[in-house]
């Protein structure tokens, strides 16, 4: 019987505090959003990349070239990238990611062929923490509209897989120095 009393008492207290909370919320209108947010076409597209690659399809040149399965320093015909390979130290080489069977495709560690448009699947095999953030829109570029159609950029849009650090840029001009009221 006593337990019942206690429970009823607690229930009363809870109801009272809940009421107080609601009343308080009502007073400060801005605490609660007045109506549910507008629904937007949330289907976020991932921007395809193969159209942007200057030399794609790779088979254009590679169709009549024999693949060299051993590790070597690539020097010819890839001038578009005029920098050193710096990713994963010595662990990586061409056919780690590019398919040796079909040069127009990438290959995952399980041997699955993946198109260049889905390159993020390769990247995130190692960088799983970034995958979570990128999926949620917390990492990476999202273009379009915040309320409407939006497109997500894939990893290689910013990070060249052969040299993933974001390139340094020339900054825009600094603000004009404040030298008193010269404008008068």
């Amino acid at each position: 019987m006593r337990a019942l009393h206690v429970t009823a008492g607690r229930l009363c207290a809870w109801a009272l505090s809940a009421f107080a909370l609601v009343a308080c919320r009502g007073k400060h209108g801005h605490d609660t959003p007045p109506t549910p947010p507008p629904k937007h076409a949330e289907q976020v597209q991932i921007e395809p990349r193969s159209d942007m690659l200057p030399a794609y399809p790779c088979s254009g040149c590679h169709a009549d070239r024999k693949p060299r399965p051993e590790k070597y320093v690539l020097k010819e015909f890839h001038e578009v990238r005029n920098h050193e390979f710096s990713h994963g130290e010595d662990a990586f080489w061409c056919y780690q990611c590019h398919s040796i069977k079909n040069i127009d495709k990438l290959v995952t560690s399980t041997g699955e062929l993946v198109s260049f448009d889905e390159a993020y699947r390769l990247c995130t095999a190692c960088h799983g923490d970034k995958l979570k953030d990128w999926r949620a829109g917390m990492h990476g570029l999202v273009v379009g509209n915040w309320n409407g159609e939006k497109r997500k950029k894939s990893c290689p849009a910013c990070h060249d897989p052969h040299d993933p650090r974001y390139p340094s840029l020339k900054p825009e001009k600094p603000p004009a120095p404040s030298k008193g009221l010269k404008a008068f």
């Binding site: 959003p33 947010p37 949330e42 949620a136 829109g137 917390m138 990492h139 990476g140 570029l141 999202v142 915040w146 309320n147 950029k153 910013c158 974001y166 840029l169």
Partner: peptide
């Protein structure tokens, strides 16, 4: 160009800013 900036509706649980503030 870097994707450092995120903008959106804080009242929308699916928006990027909301996810950032939550996580």
């Amino acid at each position: 160009p870097t994707g450092a900036r995120k903008f959106g509706n804080l009242a929308d649980p699916e928006s990027e800013v909301r996810k950032i503030v939550e996580n």
